[in-house]
Amino acid sequence: MADAALSSPANRAAPAKARVQNVQAPLWRNALFVLPFLVVFVALLVVPLVWGIWLSLHKADAFSSGRFVGFANYVRLYNDKIFWQAIGNTFYFVLLTVPALAVIGLMLALALNSRTRTAAVLRTVFFASSVLSVTIVTLIWRIVFVPGFGLLATVYGWFGAAPPAFLSDPDLVMIAIAIATIWWCIGLPMMLFLSALQQIPGDIYEAAALDNANRWRTFRYITLPSIKRTFVLVVVIQIVLQFQLFGQAKLMTNGGPNNVSKPMVLYIYEAAFTKWDLGLGAAASEVLFVLILIAAMVQFLVSRRKGESA
């Protein structure tokens, strides 16, 4: 993530470095600028993270420090079918949402990349849902999906039909949560793509227009290569975000039916606050952390290799 976004400004700055070597000497006092953040970062992120690792090696509840059990919590996780199911659910959800968000976001950006009033209004509409909180988003979508008197049921009712049971059919619940999530999150990818499109110099398109290139060819050979980096950025941001699915699943289905929509974060939350099994919850947190770290690393390496070959 860092690399994709940082590489080009860094390169541009490179020649300047040589001339001011003297002021670029490492000095302790320069660190004063990063110190305030580092203090907060260490105190509230690193320390809790390390504490979490320590906790994960203990049998602990909310009211006692517990006793050391080594890797027993990890062994329990390994043997817990529902934990594996939660990992699977999380990957399935990422698979459902991320490609859709990237593709729909790009299509909307292409369609709305014009200066008309209509386009401006439509951009507002598509971004508006992003500002709502998860409690409201899920309330809205429950009232859409709920059988009997939901929006979907009402619309189906006009045709004398009953809608699919989006919130209770094991095959559909994840899709329902994904639909609500895409509705909620589509604004950001769209905006990122829009701004990338704005950066493409207009004369390239004019040249293409003179060559009578059709819409698809223009898109394939001009637009797409120009926004490749943004595409990667969108995909990575969304993978990291959607990996952390929690509120929608908790509030729309509570992980049901029978855990088919329980993501990892909900598993962690329940372990800690419903079962009071802090050690188990902490162990599951570490697994989630490692998975996200791997995803970020893979992206980092892939984008670096791309950067070198380009």
Partner: peptide
Amino acid sequence: VLMGLAVPEQAVLIARHQL
């Protein structure tokens, strides 16, 4: 600091609450 980006809020929730 960059690696901190990969730490989900929920992963440090329990320890933070104790802190």
